[in-house]
Computed example of a mutant assay.
Amino acid sequence: MERLRTQETLMARHKSPGPTDREMAILSVLWERGPSTVREIHETIKTDSETGYTTTLKLMQIMADKGLLSRKDAGRQHVYRPAVSQEKTQNQVVGDVLEKVFAGSAEKLVMRALSARKVSPEELKRIREMLDEMEGT
């Protein structure tokens, strides 16, 4: 019975629309470092959590099954790389949040994002430039 629940949990994870927080941590390392082994990823993220090596390995295997990572065998090591770009992943996550939390309202999403923390003058300038570009001015 316990094994069945574990399999159901793993299957549910495979159906999730976007990366989990732990998966995002791994993807962030890979986007920054480039192709890496499980050991290299584990050494980087273990400072952030109490995750064991085998947990990192299993999580990366699941991510490969989900299509988030690709794996290449290099002797006894497996080298992983993101299967999806950072931009595409960010677009997917933002799209999911937009639909689930803000009922599809980009205005509400942007207003909440801007009010959630102090925005630097440089960020505001880039936001204004992007809005001007979108308006065609």
Rank of each mutant, 00 (worst) to 15 (best):
M1Q: 05
M1G: 06
E2N: 09
E2K: 01
L4Q: 05
R5M: 02
Q7W: 10
Q7H: 11
E8T: 04
E8V: 02
L10T: 07
L10H: 08
M11P: 00
A12D: 03
H14D: 04
K15Q: 10
S16M: 12
S16V: 12
P17K: 10
G18E: 05
D21L: 11
E23N: 01
E23Y: 05
M24V: 10
A25Y: 00
A25T: 03
L27W: 01
L30W: 07
E32G: 02
R33W: 09
R33N: 13
G34N: 10
P35H: 08
V38E: 03
E40P: 08
H42A: 09
E43W: 05
T44A: 14
T44I: 03
I45F: 11
K46P: 08
K46F: 10
T47D: 15
T47I: 12
T47L: 12
S49M: 07
T51Y: 07
T51N: 06
G52I: 03
Y53H: 13
T54Q: 14
L59N: 11
L59H: 01
M60L: 02
M63E: 02
A64D: 04
L68D: 01
L69E: 01
R71F: 00
D73F: 03
A74V: 13
G75P: 11
H78D: 06
H78C: 04
V79N: 02
V79P: 09
V79Q: 00
V79Y: 01
Y80S: 02
A83G: 09
V84T: 07
V84H: 00
S85D: 03
K88Q: 13
Q90M: 13
Q92P: 02
Q92K: 12
G95L: 05
G95I: 02
V97P: 07
E99R: 09
F102E: 05
G104V: 12
S105F: 06
A106C: 11
E107R: 09
E107C: 01
K108R: 15
L109H: 04
R112S: 14
R112W: 04
R112T: 15
L114W: 05
L114S: 04
S115V: 09
S115A: 14
A116H: 08
A116S: 15
R117Y: 11
R117G: 04
V119L: 05
S120L: 15
E122Q: 14
E123S: 14
L124E: 14
K125D: 14
K125P: 04
R126T: 12
I127E: 02
R128T: 09
E129T: 08
E129F: 06
L131Q: 07
D132R: 15
E135F: 08
E135M: 11
G136D: 10
T137E: 15
T137K: 14
T137V: 11
